[in-house]
């Protein structure tokens, strides 16, 4: 996970006894305390969209997530004096967002049972995600491709183009809750596996299973989209 350092922020200040890589965060905090509006605007552009995505994992809708994130920004500014550079500024900010969003989600009586890795909400059903694409038992090629993947023509161009964004976004939105949370944190926001396990209170194995199902579903959505055109 990269730190939330503005590109032009001075990086010479090192947190005493801390990770030298976090020095840029300390410099950024000093700039914010000086009232540097450009530094704050940079930080907003870097983090705000991810903060809204994070909040949306815990609350009902986008509008509520935006509200929660606005509250979180207030919390960030009020708490800035207490930021000591022990963790990355970005990590610290996301923690504030997650806490506020969780509290709000609870108030909405929306249960987010991440800690109990339950099987009843559809996260855990089914075996192999694409099992109908392989030869079945009783054939000499059991387990080998019956319907192999077809090449995606102009794959890089089309998959990474803006039009595919909506396809990926919709596929993620349609996932069961835990799969959606894991792929959002890992592949959209770029957190590492340990951070995701901590945030969602799941084991490393569960994290990989959920990530696998989520990625398989998104690949499938892209395949349908590319072949339909």
């Amino acid at each position: 996970m990269s730190t939330g350092i503005a590109p032009d922020a001075p990086t010479t200040v090192i947190a005493p006894g801390g990770d030298p890589a976090l020095g840029g965060d300390i410099a950024l905090v000093h700039a914010l305390r000086r009232g540097d509006e450009a530094a704050f605007a940079d930080l907003v552009h870097q983090l705000h969209p991810s903060m809204v995505r994070l909040a949306q994992l815990f609350v009902r809708d986008r509008a509520t997530a935006e509200e929660v994130v606005q509250e979180a920004w207030v919390g960030v500014l009020q708490g800035l004096d207490g930021f000591e550079g022990r963790s990355a500024l970005r990590t610290w900010i996301f923690r504030i967002v997650a806490n506020k969003a969780r509290t709000r989600g609870r108030r909405e009586a929306r249960t987010v049972p991440f800690s109990a890795f339950a099987t009843e909400d559809g996260d855990d059903d089914g075996g192999s995600a694409d099992s109908d694409r392989f030869w079945g038992l009783g054939t000499s090629t059991v387990g080998y491709w019956q319907a192999p993947p077809e090449p995606w023509l102009d794959a890089e161009g089309r998959v990474l183009a803006a039009e595919a964004r909506d396809v990926v976004d919709a596929a993620i939105a349609a996932l069961p809750e835990r799969q959606r949370a894991v792929i959002t944190l890992r592949d959209v926001m770029g957190w590492d596996a340990d951070e995701v396990c901590n945030e969602l209170d799941i084991t490393a194995t569960n994290q990989r299973v959920l990530l696998h199902r989520a990625r398989t579903a998104v690949r499938h959505a892209l395949e349908d989209y590319l072949h339909a055109a």
Partner: peptide
């Protein structure tokens, strides 16, 4: 090919990170 498409899927998902405020 499947592996390549999976990597491309992950890259495409990462594109959602850059969003406008």
């Amino acid at each position: 090919l499947y592996l390549d498409q999976m990597k491309l899927t992950i890259a495409a998902t990462g594109r959602l990170r850059a969003a406008d405020v």
